[in-house]
């Protein structure tokens, strides 16, 4: 469903992605691991064009999104993104956070968008928080709202950039549970995460990135128990 060919990304002199090629199938959950600075976020951000690839191509559902003629906003509607620091809109209520893009971008009626937003909030267990502002939510609740907000656009793929790493430990579980539900409902997901438990339980495939390339990939079993490359082993020994 997503084909990535020879993806390069440079920031001035600094080459961050050095030729990434990978296919992601529909309904697949791909976890990306790797040391800090290896280019994981940049890789994810290229998939919804928050960063413009320097070269290479990305094809989502047969549509070549790296084409110059493509409407970037349309692409972004198809790929939902969840950030490490939530990035909820602080001047909007939870309900408005979720219903806003469908109203303004998809041109849904307010009633329809709010009905869907209520459903999504119920799905992430926050129906009772519909009318509060983000400042009144805990970190875990914020991230669940952020997931609902991304889902409201009916994306074809969901991208998660370390969605639990800014959370207190006791809140990690509630967010992972929502993500797990999502995976089981068949959502295609690319997740940058160091939650090995999640990767093992929910992930179909794990990519290990280092220094701008995919060093090794395989099932969670393969990577966590039988890594072949020294760099992978070294990294895993540090975080496990």
């Amino acid at each position: 469903m997503i084909e990535i060919r020879d993806l390069y990304k440079r920031f001035g002199e600094l080459e961050v992605l050095k030729g990434i090629s990978v296919d992601i199938k529909e309904n697949e959950v791909v976890c990306v691991i790797g040391p800090s600075g290896s280019g994981k976020s940049t890789f994810l951000r290229c998939i919804n064009l928050l960063e413009k690839p320097s070269s290479g191509e990305i094809i989502i559902d047969g549509e070549k999104i790296t084409d110059k003629k493509i409407n970037i906003n349309k692409i972004r509607e198809e790929a939902g993104m969840v950030f490490q620091h939530f990035n909820l809109f602080p001047h909007k209520t939870t309900l408005q956070n979720v219903s806003m893009a469908p109203i303004k971008v998809r041109k849904l009626s307010k009633e329809e968008a709010e009905k869907r937003a209520h459903n999504l909030l119920t799905k992430v267990g926050l129906e009772d928080k519909a009318n509060v502002y983000p400042s009144a939510l805990s970190g875990g609740q914020k991230q669940r709202v952020a997931i609902a907000r991304a889902l409201a656009m009916h994306p074809k793929v969901m991208l998660f950039d370390e969605p639990t790493s800014a959370l207190d430990p006791e809140m990690v579980g509630e967010v992972l549970a929502v993500m797990k539900d999502l995976a089981q409902a068949g959502m295609t997901m690319v997740v940058v995460t160091h939650e090995m438990g999640f990767a093992k339980e929910v992930g179909d495939r794990v990519l290990f990135m280092d220094d701008g390339v995919i060093v090794e990939q395989g099932t969670p079993e393969d990577i966590f128990s039988n890594a072949r490359h020294e760099r992978t082993k070294l990294f895993l020994s540090k975080i496990l």
Binding site: L50, N73, R76, M81, F83, N87, M100, A101, V105, A146
Partner: peptide, 8 residues
């Protein structure tokens, strides 16, 4: 970024 990622 969040706004842009929602297609705005």
């Amino acid at each position: 970024e969040a706004a842009r990622s929602l297609g705005m």
